[in-house]
């Protein structure tokens, strides 16, 4: 066996061990070294050179990146998730179909990614990803879960979204489901701002799915400093006023029209 490959797989074993120990610091450390080592394999994306060990190498690399994705969820690092996921993706899309056995983790991770997009409220990208999936993939519970969530989210059935936390298909999903609650809350807050002039604190607490007034007040302080809390109600007036009003550049338009007219006259 290729010494490099051996080195990588040995290091990966150590990574897995640390992963099980939940020693995430050393995991991250090892992962970074692994990635650097992986760049030396020419069989990996984007080069896809046919080397004798290419299948093994690609397989190993794929597994490393799958672990990396899961690790990023564990350490609750969305940026790292995104990075690792994109690096993993070519292994599914470009390399996977023809020469590799499909990965067990594939749908789990794709589902996670969908969830992440939902959490980050990147609906357009969510649908782009969805379109790329095959019909069989859509049947997979992991994917299905994410799709259903999105539908509820769009409908405004926020309670269904929140209740879905209980039947998450995988433990890693829990992290995103928590985040999703916050996304939902932001959506509600945005809508209320538009819909009401003011809300009583009680209504607002219910609406925003907080368990106590304290939480609500903290939330307002952190996220919406332009809301006013007085007389036991939350006023949204200020936020409405501050919305920038677009001015019509009338003077400029007039000038332009006049100059057109002048030029027209000059045309021979």
């Amino acid at each position: 066996m290729d010494p490099q490959l051996t080195e990588v797989s040995q290091m990966f074993e150590r990574f897995k061990a640390a992963f099980i120990r939940k020693d995430f610091d050393s995991c991250a450390n090892l992962l970074s070294q692994l990635k650097v080592l992986l760049t030396k394999f020419r069989s990996l994306p984007p080069l896809f050179e046919n080397t004798p060990n290419s299948v093994n190498e690609v397989l190993l690399a794929r597994e490393i990146y799958e672990h990396a994705v899961v690790l990023s969820v564990k350490i609750e690092d969305q940026d790292a998730f995104e990075r690792d996921f994109f690096q993993l993706k070519p292994y599914y899309t470009d390399a996977g179909s023809s020469r590799l056995p499909p990965s067990q983790q594939e749908y789990l991770i794709l589902g996670l990614n969908l969830l992440r997009l939902l959490v980050q409220n990147r609906i357009a990208e969510f649908h782009t990803e969805l379109e790329l999936l095959s019909a069989t993939a859509l049947e997979n519970p992991c994917i299905k879960h994410a799709v259903e969530l999105e539908q509820s989210f769009m409908e405004g059935a926020y309670n269904r979204v929140l209740s879905a936390r209980q039947n998450a298909p995988h433990e890693t999903y829990v992290y995103f489901m928590d985040l999703l609650a916050k996304t939902v809350r932001d959506e509600i807050a945005g809508c209320s701002e538009k819909a009401y002039d003011y809300l009583s604190i009680n209504d607002a607490r219910q609406m925003l799915l907080f368990s106590s007034d304290q939480e609500l007040l903290e939330y307002i302080k952190e996220e919406h400093p332009d809301w006013e809390v007085k007389n036991g109600s939350v006023y949204f007036q200020k936020a409405k006023d501050s919305a920038p009003c677009k001015e019509i550049p009338s003077l400029q338009l007039i000038n332009q029209t006049l100059s057109y007219a002048r030029e027209l006259e000059r045309i021979v």
Partner: peptide, 19 residues
């Protein structure tokens, strides 16, 4: 096995390791 996207490489740009 042509690459269909540069996304992976672009993601790699955000990695902390200079290499």
């Amino acid at each position: 096995t042509m690459v269909s996207s540069a996304g992976g490489l672009l993601a790699m740009l955000n990695e902390s390791h200079p290499q």
